[in-house]
Design a protein around this nucleic acid. Structure first.
Lengths: 132, 132
DNA sequence: GGTTCTGTTATACAAATATTATAACAGGCT
DNA sequence: AGCCTGTTATAATATTTGTATAACAGAACC
């Protein structure tokens, strides 16, 4: 587990942890079926409170990234609710694209950046390397 | 001014206001040079405290969307810092694309959504309607 | 069976943040 | 002079965030 927490960030610790785990899944550092450390153990190695880790795990569960196996702890298990995911994506994109548009970032530049970032993530399309 | 605040949202009021004004600029409902209502007036029409509006305006100023003219109040004035804007865009995209990737949303779908949303925004490219 | 680890829940507390409330000041407008 | 502007200060309250301790039940291990 390589988790980096910036205690000077204005982003809440549980959110940083939450986001980094999602990043980890997207980049295949964590894979479906992998177990995450126990809340106490991870809290200990990071140096934060158990409840902060628990909060991140709880949210990840609600969002369908984790499931709890009594014997194996928190296990990566993606539950795909496409409609929900698409709705959230759109809502988030609306704001950040508005910002980009105001700052004269062209549509083409956004597309480029998407490709650049998505290249590091493993969507199902990534099994087939050819794209466009 | 058509501003909608959801008081049951988990998003802070000043943030909702902030985002909606940026949305308004991107969709040309507000244009460079337009004045926004005074902090007191807008606070009154929305039914919130003056300081909450002031906070939104202050942040928009820091981010380069507004300037204050002593005689005209808060005026839309975009200050483009491309490097900063691109950096922020990338940082934000990394997280939401990771989520999308985990939820099996393909790169092509993201591109489509970008086009769909960006079509409503007025980048400089929009003057020329032809794209791709 | 006893010990240890797990997730979960409850409670309490401190710190930071968000929101409201009043008030004041200086500059521009009419 | 009176009104509206942005700005600042200060205080009070509510909510959120993070920490601290404790307990419980289920699974694992010896």
């Amino acid at each position: 587990m390589y988790i980096e927490i910036d205690f000077n960030s204005d982003e809440a610790i549980y959110m940083q942890l939450h986001n980094q785990i999602i990043l980890g899944i997207a980049t295949s550092r964590f894979r479906e079926g992998d177990s995450l450390p126990s809340v106490r153990q991870l809290a200990d190695t990071i140096g934060i409170n158990m409840h902060t880790v628990n909060k991140a795990y709880t949210i990840l569960k609600q969002e369908g990234y984790l499931k709890v196996d009594r014997r194996r702890g928190a296990v990566i298990a993606i539950d795909v609710d496409r409609i929900r995911a698409l709705t959230e994506l759109k809502r988030e994109l609306q704001v950040i694209l508005a910002k980009s548009s105001c700052k004269n970032i062209s549509r083409a530049e956004v597309h480029e950046m998407i490709d650049e970032i998505y290249g590091n993530y493993g969507g199902q399309e990534n099994a087939v390397t050819i794209y466009r």
